[in-house]
Structure formats: structure tokens, C-alpha cells
Computed example of a mutant assay.
Amino acid sequence: MLIDALLDDGDLDAAWREAVGRADDRQWQQLADLPREPRPADALGVYLRLTGYLAAPRAELRCRRKPMTILDRHGL
């Protein structure tokens, strides 16, 4: 609830801070979908986690081309 309120108020830095340990996947994606200019590494980390790249064994990564295409399209 707090994260949603901060996003609604446009307080993006506070929303990123409060998200750690509290945000659900929907809120993380909402944060990552914001303009990436101020926090590109944070946005990339969210996308990698949501697509399973951080937990996937290396052999599985070769089979997952589509998410990387999406990340490339967004300049990440």
C-alpha cells in the first residue's frame, strides 16, 4: 500500500527504497517499467528476477532468447 501511494505521488526514489523486502511482483514490475534513466541497474535487476534469469542454471539460459530480446528493445 505504501509503495503504491508513493508511486501515485510521484516519489519514485522513496518507492524504490520502500520496495526492498516489501514489494510484490506487480509493484516491482511497475517500478521497473518507469523511465529507466535514474535507476537502470535496478530496473534490469527486476526484469532479470521476474523472467527467472537470476535463478536459472546456465544451460537453461541458452533457451531463453525472447526475454533478452525484450530487454534489448528497452535498451537494458
Rank of each mutant, 00 (worst) to 15 (best):
Y53V: 05
P57C: 06
A43I: 00
L50H: 06
A32V: 01
R49F: 00
L54E: 10
E18M: 14
D42M: 11
E18A: 15
T51S: 15
A19K: 00
R39V: 10
A56G: 07
A55L: 11
W28Q: 10
V46Q: 01
R17Y: 05
A19V: 02
P35E: 13
A55T: 12
A59E: 13
R49T: 07
G45E: 02
P38E: 09
Q27T: 09
R22T: 13
A23G: 06
L44N: 01
P40E: 07
L48E: 11
R17P: 00
Q29E: 12
D33K: 02
R58M: 12
V46D: 03
T51L: 05
P35N: 14
T51F: 13
A59V: 06
R39W: 12
A23N: 02
G52S: 08
E60C: 07
P40W: 00
R22L: 11
P40Q: 08
P35T: 10
L48D: 00
D24H: 07
A56D: 15
Q27D: 02
P40H: 02
G21Q: 06
A41Q: 14
E60W: 10
W28D: 02
A59T: 06
R39C: 03
D25C: 02
Y53S: 11
Q30D: 09
A41R: 07
E37I: 10
W28S: 04
L44E: 10
A55S: 13
P38N: 13
R17W: 05
L31Q: 05
Y47R: 15
A59G: 06
R22D: 09
G21F: 04
L31S: 03
Q30K: 14
P38W: 07
V20M: 10
P38L: 09
E37K: 15
L54Q: 13
L44H: 03
E18N: 11
L34W: 08
A19Y: 01
